[in-house]
Nucleic acid binder design. Structure first.
Lengths: 123, 123
DNA sequence: GACTTATATAAAATGGAACTTATAATAAGC
DNA sequence: GCTTATTATAAGTTCCATTTTATATAAGTC
């Protein structure tokens, strides 16, 4: 599975967000995801499996608990791909911005538009 | 559709790669994609539609030709998301690298591993 | 105006990921 | 040892994006 296929899934992206600050037991993740997306425990467990098997996360066992944590390595594939375009297209974007501000006299991209579209469940 | 859903598709990623150097007519794109992925012309055309309607590309008509070009704006959503993690996790990664090189006496991450897994067609 | 080229749209088929229900596995608590 | 808690796996179903086949549109060519 390509890295993008892993991230091209709202639930999995959310799980990775939850792990941003550090490791968490599967139960914690499950509770949050189930509440937010309205899916069952096995469903979450299966997403965790995908993340685990694809190498996006590691797992540490402690008793019956499984602590999941992000493994940054695989993100390289994504960041590299994106970075290639960012550098390339940023120029065009800035050029367009410059053009617009020159024409309209407004400031150059003071704040970026961050849109976080969270769809509920199924894609 | 979230930006990641657009990029979470090998054909569409490839199309965007083909547009990296500048605009191209739908036919050119179609020929290459059909050869590489073994899918039909309408299939390609529908991917182009997704890219068009999601705002990832623009189209310019010239006769019967349709010239597609990348529109960088939407990439912000992806780069922002990724960037957040990159900055955060790069530290951990570098720390690990530093540790390893300290232990083994090898240079610190001289070249990044770029793996480009291209699967053929269906996921 | 018939013919070809270039591209898109419609409708139906298909394939597979993601979900559910049910159950197993494993450890901890009593 | 039985029960409870935590998590994973199995099997079956559903859903929807992707694909195909078929056709439409629209512009060049002769």
């Amino acid at each position: 599975m390509h890295a993008f296929d892993i991230l091209g899934e709202p639930v999995r992206r959310r799980i990775l967000e939850l792990l941003e600050r550090g490791e968490r037991p599967a139960g914690d993740i499950g509770a949050i995801i189930q509440r937010e997306f309205g899916i069952s425990q096995p469903a979450v467990s299966q997403h965790l499996r995908v993340l685990r098997e694809s190498g996006f996360t590691t797992v540490r066992a402690d008793g019956t608990r499984r602590f999941y944590a992000v493994r940054p390595a695989l993100f390289r594939e994504v960041t590299d791909w994106v970075e290639r375009y960012r550098v390339h297209w940023e120029d065009q974007f800035d050029a367009l911005d410059g053009h617009l501000s020159a024409v309209q006299g407004r400031p150059v991209r003071s704040s970026r538009t961050r849109r976080r579209t969270r769809r509920n469940g199924r894609s």
